[in-house]
Amino acid sequence: MRADATLLLLDKDAVEQLLTPDEVTQAVREAFVLHGRREGRVFPVVREKLATGGVFGIKSGDVPAQGLLGFKAAGFWPANREIGGEPHQATILLFDPATGRPQCVIDGNAITTVRTGAAGGLGLQLLARQDSTRLTVFGTGVQARSQLRFALRTLPRLACVEYVSVDRRADEGFESLFADQCDIRCARDADEAVSRSDVVITATPGAGPLFDAGALRPGTHLNCVGADTAGKRELPDGVLQRARLVVDDREQALQLGELQWARETPCVELGTLLLGERPFERAAGEITVFDMTGLALQDLTVARFIHERACAEAVGTRIGWAW
């Protein structure tokens, strides 16, 4: 038995210290390209409701050529808000594929937040009209904030942002984060806000349709984040039938995403577009949708660079882990 081996632990503070938006975007882009080339594998997703009221899931995969193997155990526990906690919980583990030894335990909340925002940014870069000036975001929580941050980085002409909060009331904390980057205000009527928008981002718990399909005007792009479990949705009937649909993974979107509600809708994976294998030219009046269910490879490529940087900079806590 080897007794000199260690396991690296990286908590939330350590991860946030090492994250940078540009590097996360680069890692997420790599994940989509690996997926498009089928050089990275995505294993079947576990996503189960619990008797406690939470939802627990596991996303896992590997990149054999890079010696990258791991999983993210994550879920959503809404009752955490009542005790002052974050409802989303996630932990990432990286393993040595040659031995099965755990290498690193990483707080997954910060990684999930930023890698999903970066994926949304890539979707906007490829699919949205680059002259877009008006955006509506549904939600004011952690993921809505991340999506809006990356949208403002990606679409430099965005000037007007409307947000739809759960109670239709203004959220001063949310507004203060973006007030110096755009004209931001609370939308009282979701349909009216959507009808004025070039870009719509849905980042809610996915409890049901958020607006009327008739509110969408030609040329709008939608990033849809909240449908990540069977039974969840944010889009009303009729939207996907009018749109060009892009997904992160077709099989996963059929199980968990908006695609589960319109299963015959033709779609293309984002990795294919990034590889240039299928040219994407947007007609001015087209409606486009990016159905984002979240790939294990996104978590793993980001976790890998966090692990490498933590080792190089001696960040984190090491504990003995004999084998």
Rank of each mutant, 00 (worst) to 15 (best):
Thr91Ile: 11
Leu50Cys: 12
Ala27Glu: 07
Arg37Phe: 02
Asp22Thr: 11
Glu30Pro: 02
Pro44Val: 04
Val45Ala: 07
Glu23Pro: 06
Asp13Gly: 13
Val15Cys: 05
Glu86Phe: 09
Ala31Pro: 11
His35Trp: 02
Leu69Ala: 05
Gln89Ala: 12
Gly100Glu: 12
Thr99Tyr: 03
Val46Ala: 15
Glu86Lys: 01
Thr91Pro: 03
Ala31Arg: 04
Ala51Ser: 11
Leu19Arg: 10
Pro97Ser: 13
Gly100Lys: 01
Leu19Ser: 06
Asn80Ile: 01
Gly57Leu: 04
His88Gly: 05
Val63Leu: 04
Phe56Ser: 08
Arg29Tyr: 05
Val28Trp: 00
Pro97Met: 06
Lys49Glu: 01
Glu30Thr: 15
Val45Pro: 02
Gly54Thr: 10
Ala79Glu: 13
Glu39Pro: 07
Ala51Arg: 11
Gln89Glu: 13
Leu34Arg: 09
Lys59Cys: 00
Leu69Glu: 04
Ala14Asn: 14
Gly53Val: 00
Pro78Glu: 00
Phe56Asp: 00
Glu23Asn: 11
Leu68Trp: 06
Val46Ile: 14
Leu18Ile: 12
Pro44Ala: 08
Gly75Gln: 03
Gly75Asn: 01
Val28Phe: 06
Leu34Gly: 02
Glu16Pro: 03
Ala27Phe: 09
Pro64His: 04
Val55Gly: 03
Lys49Ala: 01
Lys49Asp: 01
Arg41Gly: 07
Trp77Glu: 11
Pro64Ile: 08
Leu94His: 07
Phe71Arg: 04
Thr99Gln: 04
Gly61Pro: 08
Phe95Ser: 11
Gly53Cys: 05
Val46Leu: 15
Ala51Ile: 05
Asp96Arg: 07
Arg47Trp: 01
Ile92Gln: 08
Leu69Phe: 09
Ala73Gln: 00
Ala79Asn: 00
Thr20Trp: 03
Val63Glu: 02
Val42Trp: 05
Thr25Gly: 01
Arg47Lys: 06
Glu30Ala: 15
Glu23Ile: 12
Ala98Glu: 13
Asn80Ala: 04
Val15Phe: 06
Glu82Ile: 09
Leu18Thr: 04
Arg81Val: 15
Thr25Phe: 00
Asp62Leu: 09
Glu39Leu: 15
Thr25Glu: 09
Leu93Met: 13
Val24Tyr: 02
Pro64Glu: 01
Arg38Cys: 11
Ser60Val: 05
Gln17Ser: 13
Asp22Ala: 15
Ala74Arg: 10
Phe43His: 10
Ala90Cys: 07
Asp96Ala: 14
Arg81Gly: 02
Gly67His: 12
Glu86Gln: 14
Val24Ser: 06
Ala14Trp: 02
Lys12Gln: 15
Phe76Trp: 15
Ala31Ser: 12
Gln26Pro: 03
Arg37Met: 09
Thr25Cys: 09
Arg101Phe: 15
Leu50Gln: 07
Ala98Gln: 15
Asp22Asn: 14
Gln66Ala: 15
Gly53Phe: 05
Thr20Ile: 01
Gly84Lys: 12
Gly40Ala: 06
Pro78Asn: 08
Gly85Ala: 06
Asn80Pro: 01
Glu30Gln: 14
Gln26Arg: 15
Ile92Glu: 05
Asn80Lys: 00
Ala27Gly: 01
Ala31Gln: 06
Asp22His: 12
Gly70Leu: 04
Phe56His: 07
Ile58Asp: 01
Arg81Cys: 09
Phe95Ile: 06
His35Asn: 11
Glu48Thr: 12
Asn80Tyr: 07
Gly61Gln: 02
Pro44Met: 06
Pro97Cys: 11
Ala14Pro: 10
Val45Ser: 11
Gln66Leu: 15
Pro97Trp: 02
Gly100Tyr: 12
Ala79Lys: 02
Arg29Asp: 11
